[in-house]
Design a protein around this nucleic acid. Structure first.
Length: 204
DNA sequence: AAAAGTTCCAACCGCGGAGTG
DNA sequence: TCACTCCGCGGTTGGAACTTT
C-alpha cells in the first residue's frame, strides 16, 4: 500500500468500502471533492469516484459478458470507436472500465486469432475501417430546433460525404443514434471480425 | 513443488471539457 | 476573456491469480 502526501493509494479494503457506501447513501452521488472529507476517507476524490462507479454502485453486473452484450458491444464500437462510457451506457450493469478491459483482452485476442484466417479475404474485399462519430455542427442561422421547436420529424443525414456514400434517412428521436445500427430496411445487421485491423462488417 | 510466464481486473494518471467568478 | 476548479473520460500500469514448464 502506497501513500503520497498522506493520501492512501492502492487496493481498497472492506472498511473503506463501507465508509464510501455510507457516505454516498447519505449525501448522494456527485460533489466528489467533498466525499473524502465527509466519508472520513484518506483517499483522493478521483479514487473515491472510481471505486463507487466501478465496484460499489448498486446493480453493477459481475461475471462474463453474454453473447448479446458482446454483440452489442461490437456494434457500438464500430459506431463510436473507443467511447467506452457511451458503450457501457447501453449495457445495463456494465461499467466503462469493464467494457474497456473486456475489449482490450478478449477482443484483442479474437482479432489475433482471426487475423490469419481472414487476412486474404480482407485484402481483397473489405474497405478500410471507418468509425462514425457524432460531428459537432455549427449553425449559420438561428435554428428553430435550438429554440425548442422541431423543424420536422424526418431529416436526411449524409453519413459519408467524402466517400460519396448513399445518404440515409433517419428519424429524430431522443436516441437518434440507435437507428445507426440499422440498415436501410430497419433491420439490425450481423457483424463479424475480419482480420488485420479488427475490421467489422455488417451483414444485413 | 517451484519458478517462469501469462492473464485479467482494479486502480492510477493525465488530459480535455464544462462551469463559475 | 481569462483563470481556476471540478468532473469525467480513455489510456496505461501494478499486481494478484492462474497456468505452464
Amino acid at each position: 500500500m502506497k501513500e503520497s502526501f498522506g493520501v492512501r493509494k492502492g487496493a481498497w479494503n472492506q472498511f473503506e468500502d463501507d465508509l464510501l457506501r455510507d457516505c454516498v447513501k447519505l449525501y448522494g452521488e456527485g460533489k466528489w471533492h467533498l466525499v473524502p472529507q465527509r466519508a472520513g476517507l484518506n483517499r483522493c476524490r478521483k479514487s473515491c469516484r472510481l471505486r463507487w462507479l466501478n465496484y460499489l454502485k448498486p446493480n453493477i453486473k459481475r461475471g462474463d459478458f453474454s453473447e448479446d452484450e458482446v454483440d452489442l458491444m461490437i456494434r457500438m464500437h464500430k459506431l463510436l470507436g473507443n467511447r467506452w462510457s457511451l458503450i457501457a451506457g447501453r449495457l445495463p450493469g456494465r461499467t466503462s472500465n469493464d467494457v474497456k478491459n473486456y475489449w482490450n483482452t478478449y477482443m484483442r485476442r479474437k482479432v489475433q486469432s482471426d487475423k490469419n484466417v481472414k487476412k486474404q479475404e480482407v485484402a481483397a474485399n473489405v474497405k478500410p475501417h471507418q468509425v462514425i462519430k457524432p460531428i459537432p455542427r455549427a449553425f449559420s442561422k438561428p435554428s428553430t430546433c435550438l429554440q425548442g421547436k422541431l423543424l420536422s420529424n424526418n431529416f436526411i443525414v449524409d453519413v459519408n460525404e467524402a466517400a460519396g456514400a448513399n445518404a440515409i434517412s433517419s428519424a429524430v428521436s431522443e436516441n437518434w443514434w440507435e437507428t445507426l445500427l440499422e440498415d436501410n430496411a430497419g433491420n439490425i445487421g450481423t457483424c463479424f471480425f475480419s482480420g488485420e485491423d479488427a475490421v467489422l462488417d455488417f451483414l444485413p
